[in-house]
């Protein structure tokens, strides 16, 4: 019962682990970004589920409703989602630029890109 009663947390943890694994284990940058998104989304769910009040209704003032869900987490997470979208956008933009500069977005192919790459590569970037 308690295990099931915490099902929202289980979802959060499973999503979080999938996301983190994706970020760490995948070499492809797009996949890394997807993983990052999953990871963030899991936190959003964690935050939002905290606002749920059992038996509560949508937090709009109206007749006949006494119990409301807590609206604050929703508002906060709206901001956090915007932040998440912005990060995804920047990450994808960077991936595009990396594709242009290196011809690949596979981390493994890029190696560690050590220090002997010559002092300047401005030509390659146009």
């Amino acid at each position: 019962m308690t295990v099931l009663g915490f099902f929202n947390y289980w979802v959060v943890i499973i999503l979080m682990m999938i996301g983190l694994y994706c970020v760490i284990a995948r070499g492809n940058m797009i996949k890394k970004i997807i993983g990052l998104n999953l990871f963030q989304t899991s936190v959003f769910i964690l935050f939002i589920s905290a606002g749920k009040v059992v038996g509560g209704s949508t937090p709009i003032l109206r007749e006949g409703v006494e119990v409301y869900s807590n609206p604050l987490p929703h508002v906060l997470i709206l901001t956090a989602i915007v932040v998440g979208v912005a990060i995804t956008a920047v990450g994808l933009a960077l991936a595009v630029r990396i594709q242009e500069a290196y011809g690949t977005i596979e981390d493994d192919h890029l190696g560690d890109d050590g220090e002997d790459d010559g002092p300047f590569e401005e030509e390659q970037r146009g």
Binding site: L20, K32, F39, V43, A80, A95, I98, Y102
Partner: peptide
């Protein structure tokens, strides 16, 4: 940065920085 490695550095910073910030968010939650 003029060096193309700046892109890679930025991307890696983005990944790690976002994880760090999300950890902060978890804590706050």
């Amino acid at each position: 940065g003029r060096d193309r490695r700046a892109l890679l550095a930025s991307f890696r910073y983005l990944i790690m920085g976002t994880i760090g910030a999300t950890f902060l968010l978890i804590g706050i939650a």
